[in-house]
Computed example of a mutant assay.
Amino acid sequence: MSHGVMVMVLIVYYSWQGHTEKVARALAERVGGRLARIEPVSEVGTLRKAMMATFGIRAAIRPTETDLSGVNFLIVATPVWAQKAPPYVNEYLSRVTNASGKPFSVLVEMGNSGAEKVVAIVRKSLEAKGMRFVSSATTLESDVDAGRFDRTVEEFARTIVEAAAPAA
């Protein structure tokens, strides 16, 4: 795929057990995006994870690409914890800069429910920074385990490619 104008798509993901990472990688192959991992300074236990997520707490992360100056399109890929976004994702979102006017999409990986709530959390945070919501997609853990998420990623990738294409 050759573009007259190189569109820089950044896919930022947090993955605890590898499901979100698997989907984020598949998406990167489809949209030619660059991957950046959100890494906690220290992982906490499961119970504390749920508590922190429930209360919308942010938790320290290692430095990652938060300055979107050179980015044309941001994709945030995140799991669902206790019906909320993980604290590390909240922290990443809070650090995003130079994002105004830029489009973003959200990819949510879940066990069984909570995707809409997480999409809403990410949207609220990035729209507050002047970003434009384009699309969201959800994959189920069981489908990711079984390798049955191609169509979802394919359709999601299409929404991103269409939105990221420079107007002719």
Rank of each mutant, 00 (worst) to 15 (best):
P63I: 09
E116Y: 07
R158I: 03
G33R: 09
V119N: 08
V122C: 06
A28L: 12
L140W: 09
K117R: 13
G147V: 09
T159C: 04
V5H: 10
R95P: 05
G45R: 15
V80G: 07
T78R: 03
G18M: 07
G18Q: 06
A168H: 07
V5G: 10
M6K: 14
P103A: 03
E116V: 07
T46Y: 15
G130Y: 00
I121W: 00
S94W: 08
N72T: 05
A128C: 03
S105K: 10
M110P: 00
V23K: 11
Q83I: 11
S125E: 12
D67P: 08
G18P: 07
R34A: 09
V161A: 10
E39F: 00
R148M: 13
M131V: 04
P87D: 08
I38W: 05
A128G: 05
D145I: 15
V153I: 14
R34D: 09
L93M: 10
E162Q: 07
T152G: 05
I121V: 13
A128W: 02
D143Y: 06
V31I: 15
E21V: 08
K124M: 08
V12W: 07
S136K: 05
T64E: 06
L107N: 11
L27C: 08
R25L: 01
I160S: 11
L35G: 03
S135N: 06
A24R: 04
V122Y: 04
K49V: 11
M110W: 01
L107A: 09
V44N: 04
G114I: 07
R25C: 02
A165T: 15
H19T: 02
F73K: 03
L68R: 07
V76G: 02
G4L: 13
M131Y: 00
L68K: 06
S94P: 06
H3I: 08
R123P: 02
K49S: 14
A165P: 02
F149W: 13
G56V: 08
R34G: 05
A157E: 02
R25I: 01
P103L: 02
L47I: 12
S142Y: 05
E154S: 14
T138R: 02
A120S: 12
I61Y: 13
Q17I: 06
A99K: 01
E141L: 08
R58D: 08
L93R: 02
E21I: 05
R158A: 14
F133G: 04
L140D: 01
R95M: 03
M110E: 12
R37E: 15
P40T: 12
A163G: 09
K124G: 12
V96I: 14
V31M: 12
E162G: 00
A77P: 04
L10Q: 15
L68F: 10
G114K: 03
M1W: 11
V119L: 05
R30T: 04
V5C: 03
L68T: 12
G147E: 13
Q83E: 13
A82L: 11
L107E: 06
R25F: 00
V76F: 02
P103F: 01
V31N: 14
P86Y: 03
F156K: 13
A59K: 07
E155Y: 04
I38H: 04
T152S: 05
R48I: 14
E21F: 12
